[in-house]
Amino acid sequence: MAAPQPHIKLYTDSTPNGIKITTALEELGLKYEVEHVDISTLRQKEPWYLEINPNGRIPAIVDTFDDGEPIRVFEGGSILQYLTERYDPEHKLSFPKGSREYYECNNLLFFQHGGIGPMQGQASHFLKYAPVKIEYSVKRYVTETRRLYSVLDTQLSKSKSGYLVGDHLSIADIANLSWVIFGEYTDVDMNAFPHLKEWEARLSARPAIARGFHIPKVLGIKSDDPEGAKKYQNHHADWVIRSQQLEQEVFGKKIKSILIDRMSRDRRYLY
């Protein structure tokens, strides 16, 4: 059965979570439209975007479903599963459903989603962006990121194919690669993980993945600019704090509104 024709619009930025989708789309050879949601301007918090992803994060896609109506898909792991289940009948980035490799691929996809992503994200925040340096937090998250890298390194040391699962590239590789390329940015010495280091270099050299790195804009740490990583950090330092302040303000107003409403109802019951 032939795969349906995609009508994908991708909303994204050049971040670890964003490039996992662009690299997958490029590897699959799918046609798609890109809208750059520049998270440094907080576009992802605007009402129009919250209709697509109520969590106010990138990436997200909108596609045309079988009934002819739009369907939204957000969260990187969910998008990767959607793309392969719907548009990868040849299993370029996936495995037959129900196979041993299918479940192992899910294991390592969710390993990234629940492990490396959150832990390395926090390591990056406390190491590079936090207005107050908290040594405990830095050590906690950088150490945990290194431990998670060791899990991948061990997995690859046992692999006969050089990929995380089975005999070919999969969304498990794509998802984890999108964070591992930022390893040294978060004080991870890749020389401590030789199998992972070789895997990262080999996958990053694939033409489709290399294209995906630079959509919707040039990814500093994978550019020819020797100051790329520093520019990446400086670009993101300000908006990270502004975004946090905005979320605290909005959430605070919501909590206040809920409490006022509850107090109002309580008064009605009293009288």
Rank of each mutant, 00 (worst) to 15 (best):
P4M: 06
Q5H: 10
Q5A: 14
Q5S: 14
I8G: 02
K9V: 10
L10D: 05
L10Q: 05
Y11K: 03
T12I: 04
D13F: 06
D13S: 12
T23H: 04
L25Y: 03
E26D: 06
E27L: 11
L28T: 07
G29Q: 03
G29A: 11
G29H: 08
L30S: 10
L30A: 11
L30N: 07
Y32M: 06
Y32A: 04
E33A: 10
V34K: 06
H36F: 10
V37A: 00
V37F: 05
D38C: 09
I39S: 02
L42E: 09
Q44V: 01
Q44M: 09
N53F: 12
N53D: 01
P54K: 09
N55S: 03
G56D: 09
R57A: 04
A60Q: 06
I61L: 14
G68M: 11
P70I: 11
R72D: 00
V73T: 13
F74T: 08
F74M: 07
E75L: 10
G76Q: 08
S78Y: 04
S78V: 13
L80C: 09
L80T: 10
Y82L: 11
Y82G: 05
L83N: 02
E85S: 15
P89N: 08
F95M: 10
G98D: 10
G98M: 09
G98Q: 09
R100C: 05
R100Q: 14
E104T: 15
C105F: 00
C105H: 00
N106Q: 15
L108D: 01
L109D: 00
Q112T: 07
H113F: 06
H113V: 15
G115Y: 06
F126C: 08
L127V: 04
V132K: 13
K133N: 08
Y136M: 01
Y136S: 08
Y136K: 06
S137M: 14
R140Q: 14
V142R: 03
T143G: 13
E144P: 12
T145M: 05
T145A: 07
T145K: 03
R146T: 05
R147P: 07
R147Q: 05
L148Q: 02
S150C: 00
L152A: 06
T154S: 10
T154A: 14
Q155W: 01
L156S: 08
S157F: 07
S159W: 02
G162L: 09
Y163G: 01
L164N: 03
H168K: 10
A172Q: 04
D173G: 03
I174R: 05
I174Y: 06
A175I: 02
N176K: 04
L177V: 02
V180Y: 12
I181Q: 07
I181H: 03
E184T: 13
Y185A: 12
Y185G: 13
N191S: 12
H195C: 11
K197D: 13
E198W: 01
E200I: 00
A201K: 11
L203P: 01
A205I: 00
A208T: 10
G212R: 09
G212W: 02
I215M: 07
P216H: 12
K217G: 01
L219Y: 14
G220F: 14
G220Q: 14
P226Y: 07
K231L: 14
Q233T: 13
N234Q: 15
H235F: 15
H236T: 11
A237M: 11
S243C: 02
L246I: 05
V250Q: 14
V250I: 12
G252L: 05
G252R: 08
G252E: 03
R265Q: 00
D266L: 08
R267E: 12
R267F: 00
L270C: 01
